[in-house]
Design a protein around this nucleic acid. Sequence first.
RNA 1: GGAGGGAUGGCCGAGUGGCCGAUGGCGGCGGUCUUGAAAACCGCUGUACGGGGAACCGUACCGGGGGUUCGAAUCCCUCUCCCUCCGCCA
Length: 428
Amino acid sequence: MIDPVLLRDRLEDVWARLLTRGAALDVSYETLVDLDRRRRQFIRQVEEQKHQQRLASDEIAALKRQGLDASHLFDANRGRSRHIKALEGELDLIEQARARQLLRIPNLPHASVPLGRTVEDNREVRRHGDPPALDFPPKAHWDLGPALGILDFERAARMSGTRFSVLMGDGARLERALINFMLDLHAREHGYTEVEPPFLVKGATLEGTGQLPKFEADLFRIADWDLFLVPTAEVPLTNLHRDEILDGRTLPLRYTAYTPCFRSEAGSHGADVRGLIRQHQFDKVELVKITAPDQSYDELESLTRDAERVLELLGLPYRTVLLCTGDLGFASSKTYDIEVWLPSQRLYREISSCSNTEAFQARRANIRFRRDGTGKAEFVHTLNGSGLAVGRTLVAVLENFQQRDGSVVIPDVLRPFMGGREIIEPPR
RNA sequence: GGAGGGAUGGCCGAGUGGCCGAUGGCGGCGGUCUUGAAAACCGCUGUACGGGGAACCGUACCGGGGGUUCGAAUCCCUCUCCCUCCGCCA
């Protein structure tokens, strides 16, 4: 949520910056101005009436203490109570409308974010590693995997429908190896605390990170419960400190977690229908940081580097892209996407998205801190990034390390997690 | 799923209808004393919203919501969470 005070005092500036995102805002400028005006008007009325009511009550109490009759004052105050109740009813409607609007306004892009409308306007900031020089036509993972007997889409579809998959044998083990490799790297070398959070969370939790109320259609909801399957570990990790006031001396907090992620992929019909790229369920290792405002952009750089390091150690070629205003996610002020090379598609494909949401999520989830443990409580900044999307990493490993005979060389750093194995070969 | 107990300020803990935003203690801040520190003593010590240039004033907040009442931390209903016991269960 954007700072409501900023929204009121500098609405024109804020609005102009929001429009650089390109997407149509489902909130109108005039409505916001009107709601704010009426809200203040009603607050003034209610408070004035309550003040009068309190004066009358004090008078009654004073008379009673003297043993005098005060019943002649009852009627006036009873009428006042009814009036207050009516005013409060109206004020409540206004407050609700205002809250609905505020929750649907996206975050403000940071000044360093390039202006633009589409992916074409994103800015490549670095590139690492060269695409492998294969002397044969590379196969797509959806051919490689099933041929190796480690990936099965047909059986998954029979059980669960489209956009699900089964990993078997070395495939399942490779997925687990990737998860353990990433978690160990971030927890032991990059200073993140490993967390295993709930995979189901309440609606209010998703509101804290910005998935609700606007993007309910992207989520899986548990029937008859106010519970949703997590679309990313960003949600439980960021909400870990919901409604807390943290000691500033403990910041930044760094968390990493492996979770399965569940997304309905509503509105993506026809996109990436084959393979592991876009599934209803996928594994991800997530990175989340909670920082003081003045350090959050430095922490975004290092978080992005932490995610890139996974690809470097695996030996996978990638590039890092700074998203333009038009490509920015709802909650983000600034985002780097990391894209891994996929030989079969001859292009770089998103494998991580690292964002600074500044105080946008902190305000929604009410996460604050006190500098030096004292003074006034301020909102923290929250950051998140994939470190990495495991399914897509598996795809990149299969495709980049495939050989002419359809076997796949296991990257060095994964071998300890694969019982020393060096290669995955097709069954004879 | 059933029965019972609980939720009060940064923390602990009083308060069962009216000078209660809430006694007291701890912690924190300032001061006296001291070469310095501790102890002791004194004072201060929440947040949000509204009004105002400001000093300041007002309103709300005792887990959430609703109700009773002229008036609710206090009475009633309801929800959430925590604890104890029973049942079930990996």
